[in-house]
Design a protein around this nucleic acid. Structure first.
Length: 233
RNA sequence: GCGGGAUG
C-alpha cells in the first residue's frame, strides 16, 4: 500500500489521473492515507466533484476521515464556492478538535474567503494562536483578489512587524490582482519594500512587478522596474 | 506513502 500510494501520487502530480485511478482500483486494502492522497490529487486538479465521489466511497467502506481529509475538502469547497458544505465541514472540524491544527485553520480561512465571507475568514485569522507565513499569505491573497488592496497592504506591513519575511508567494499574491490606477500605489509600496530584501534580485518577481505596473497603466513604473533588475530573462 | 498560500 505504501509503495502504491507513492506511485499513485507520482502519476497524479504529473497530471495522469487516469493511470492513478487504475492503480488505485487495484489496491485491495485502501487505508486513509491512500484515500486522502486520491482526494487531494483530484482537488488539486480542480476536479472537486470527483474528489467528493472518492470521499463518499471512502465513507461507504467504513474508513473515517481525518484532518488531512478535511483540509483537502475545505479547499475543494473554497474553490467551488460551496459555502454551505464548507460550513458543515467547519462544524465537523470543531467537533473533532481539528480546528486547532494550523493547516485546517488556514484551509478554513481560505474556504470562507473564497466563498465571499472575508469577515468570517478574518475572524478565524485573528483567533489563530500561531500564524505562520502561509496563514498570512492566504489572508493577504484573499483580500487582494477581491480588490481590497488596502486591507491587503495593511496585513502585508503587519506581517513584517511580526518579524516574518514575505516570500515570493506573498508578494505575488499582493500584486497579481493589481490592475487599476488606484492599485498602482499598492504596487509601488510593495515594490519599495521588496527592493530592500533578498527578493530584489529575483527575476520571476521582477517580471511580476513589470506585469503588474503595466496592468495598472504605468509603463513608466514598469520600465523603472525593468532597469532596476539585476538579472533579466 | 497523504493535507494549507500567489502567478505562470
Amino acid at each position: 500500500v505504501i509503495v502504491g500510494t507513492a506511485l499513485i501520487r507520482m502519476y497524479g502530480v504529473c497530471g495522469c489521473l487516469k493511470e492513478a485511478e487504475i492503480l488505485f482500483d487495484r489496491v485491495s486494502d485502501k487505508d486513509i492515507i491512500l484515500w486522502n492522497c486520491m482526494i487531494a490529487l483530484y482537488v488539486e486538479h480542480k476536479k472537486s466533484s470527483q474528489a467528493l465521489v472518492f470521499f463518499h466511497q471512502m465513507l461507504g467502506e467504513g474508513v473515517l476521515p481525518n484532518k488531512v481529509t478535511c483540509s483537502s475538502l475545505l479547499n475543494a469547497y473554497g474553490s467551488e464556492n460551496e459555502l454551505a458544505m464548507g460550513k458543515k465541514m467547519h462544524a465537523c472540524c470543531v467537533g473533532s478538535n481539528y480546528e486547532l491544527d494550523m493547516v485546517v485553520e488556514t484551509a478554513l480561512i481560505y474556504m470562507y474567503g473564497k466563498c465571499g465571507c472575508l469577515e468570517a475568514a478574518h475572524l478565524l485569522f485573528d483567533r489563530m494562536h500561531v500564524r505562520d507565513l502561509v496563514a498570512w499569505t492566504t489572508m493577504i491573497s484573499l483580500y487582494a483578489q477581491q480588490e481590497h488592496h488596502c486591507k491587503a497592504l495593511q496585513l502585508f506591513s503587519q506581517l513584517q512587524q511580526e518579524s516574518l519575511m514575505p516570500d515570493i508567494v506573498t508578494v505575488v499574491g499582493m500584486i497579481s490582482a493589481c490592475a487599476s490606477e488606484e492599485a498602482l500605489f499598492i504596487c509601488k509600496q510593495v515594490h519599495a519594500c521588496v527592493m530592500v530584501t533578498k527578493l530584489a534580485s529575483d527575476t520571476v518577481l521582477g517580471n511580476a512587478f513589470i506585469s503588474a505596473f503595466n496592468k495598472c497603466g504605468s509603463l513608466k513604473e514598469a520600465l523603472t522596474c525593468f532597469e532596476q533588475m539585476t538579472k533579466r530573462d
